[in-house]
Structure formats: C-alpha cells, structure tokens
C-alpha cells in the first residue's frame, strides 16, 4: 500500500516535471536568457543599468523605490543618490520623466511601461532583443532589430555594445535580403561576452520587477512543501491505523 502511494507521488511529480517544460513556452524558441533572480548582485547590476540607460524613457509604474531597495539589499541613501535621478520620493513608484506627447513625436509611439514586460514577453525575448540591435539607415531612428523587426526603439546600450551591423544573405528576386548574422563594426566599452553578461543582469532586474514576490515565494515555498510532505505522511499513518478495522473485517 505505502509502495503504491510512494510510486504514485513519484509518478505525479515526475509527470509534472516532464509535462511542465514540454509545454513551457509557446511561440518560436529563442536562446535562453539564463537569468537568476535569486542572485542579488546580478539584480543590483541590472538595476544600475536600468536607471542609467532605460528610465529616461521607460517607467516601472508598479515598482516602488522603497520596495526595490529592501528586495535588492540596498539602503535608502544608495537608492536615492545612485538610482533615483527623477527626484521622486522614496515610497513612490519609478516613473520616467519623458513627456508622453514628445515621446510619440520622437518615436511614433510612447515607450511602454516595463513593469510586467518580463511576464508578458518572457525573459528570453528581452535578453535576445537587447542583443539584436543593428544599424539600419532605412529606419526612422537609424536602428533595427532582428528579434523584433522594425522596432521603433534605438539601441540605448550602443556605447557599451558598440555599433552592430547586419550581414545580409543573397536576396531572392522580388524580396528583400534576409539578415544572416550580426557583427560588431565598431567596438564599444564592453567585450561581446561582457555585454551579454550586462544584458543578462538587466533582464534579471526586469524579471524581478515583473514579479517581486518571486523571491519570497521560492524561499517560503520550500518550507511549505516540507511541512505538507510531513503532514501527508502523518495523515497516511492515521488512515492506515483506522483502516486496520476494515482490512480485518474481510
């Protein structure tokens, strides 16, 4: 009897483990972002990048500076002097100062709020998008992107990555040549490897911003599962004890 229950528990968890990733992500698969939201140093580096390169245009309207400080292990002073450049109060959310009307005029579309971007698009999308900008003189702002073609956003991290250009394949008649690969035409301040690390940190920060509870839920979850597993075992023993009557009365 106990063997059957143990094997069914193993079967159920094994099935969940097999099924969950098999159906994990819909849509075409991009290379994995490889982020780790439990890595606080990575989140801090990502936050630094976000507040230096992104907040000029993008808000995180659901993220408060104060909450971010405590989740990322930063003091109020560190956040207010190093990350908060908009003059917002510590308890206020992260709102970009760019006027929406000007944004529309400059980019054709107001830059979206990024609070939930990692949950709406997925971390793999963000990571690969940040690495896929290339110079394209045919676009209004001079940039294009292979992950999100014809994006209206220029590459904000160009001085880190350098200027990337596209190598086009042979064009079929009547069609535009497809982008075969991207190469760095003019190096930036970072090596390609460093830049991938930096965009991974930035992606991890956005993953955190999309679900701050993720940090708490995993650390609490382990204890909840352990408690429930123990409780279930006790309940099994209880059932076994009561059911001796039934088995005796065959």
């Amino acid at each position: 009897m106990i063997k059957r229950y143990l094997s069914s528990l193993a079967l159920a968890l094994g099935l969940a483990a097999v099924v969950a990733p098999a159906f994990a992500e819909e849509g075409e698969s991009l290379p994995s972002a490889g982020t780790n939201v439990a890595d606080q140093a990575s989140l801090q580096r990502g936050a630094k990048l976000f507040f230096n390169y992104c907040v000029g245009c993008h808000s995180l309207k659901y993220v408060r500076y104060s909450r971010m400080a405590s989740d990322l292990g930063l003091s109020e002073e560190e956040v207010m002097t190093n990350l908060n450049f908009t003059g917002a109060k510590f308890g206020e959310p992260v709102i970009s100062h760019m006027p929406e009307a000007s944004a529309k005029a400059w980019f054709g579309k107001a830059p979206p709020d990024l609070s939930l971007e990692a949950r709406a698009k997925g971390v793999d999308f963000i990571f690969n998008y940040l690495n896929a900008f290339y110079l394209d003189p045919t676009r209004p702002v001079g940039w294009n992107n292979t992950v999100f073609p014809n994006a209206s956003m220029p590459n904000p991290l160009w001085e880190l990555q350098g200027l990337q250009v596209a190598v086009h394949g042979a064009a079929k008649p009547g069609e535009e040549a497809a982008v075969e690969k991207l190469t760095i035409a003019q190096p930036g301040r970072m090596t390609p490897e460093q830049f991938r690390g930096a965009t991974r940190d930035l992606t991890a920060f956005l993953e955190y911003a999309a679900e701050p509870a993720a940090l708490e839920r995993r650390s609490v979850g382990i204890w909840v599962i352990l408690f429930l597993a123990g409780l279930t075992f006790l309940l099994y023993l209880l059932k076994h004890e009561y059911w001796k009557d039934v088995h005796d009365s065959h």
Binding site: G221, V224, I225, T232, L235, K239, Y242
Partner: peptide, 27 residues
C-alpha cells in the same frame, strides 16, 4: 481519514505549483 490523506497529497502538489510554477509555463 482516507480523504484527509488525499487532501494532504493534493495540496502538496498544489503548493508546488503555487510556489514554484504559478503561471505553469503560461498555461
């Protein structure tokens, strides 16, 4: 008591989803 054991088994699996895979891969 038998159903109580079933409840324990079930909420252990449910807790695994709630705490470790709440979107269940977008499902």
């Amino acid at each position: 008591v038998k159903d109580l054991f079933g409840v324990g088994f079930f909420i252990t699996i449910a807790a695994f989803i709630i705490f470790f895979a709440p979107t269940f891969g977008g499902w």
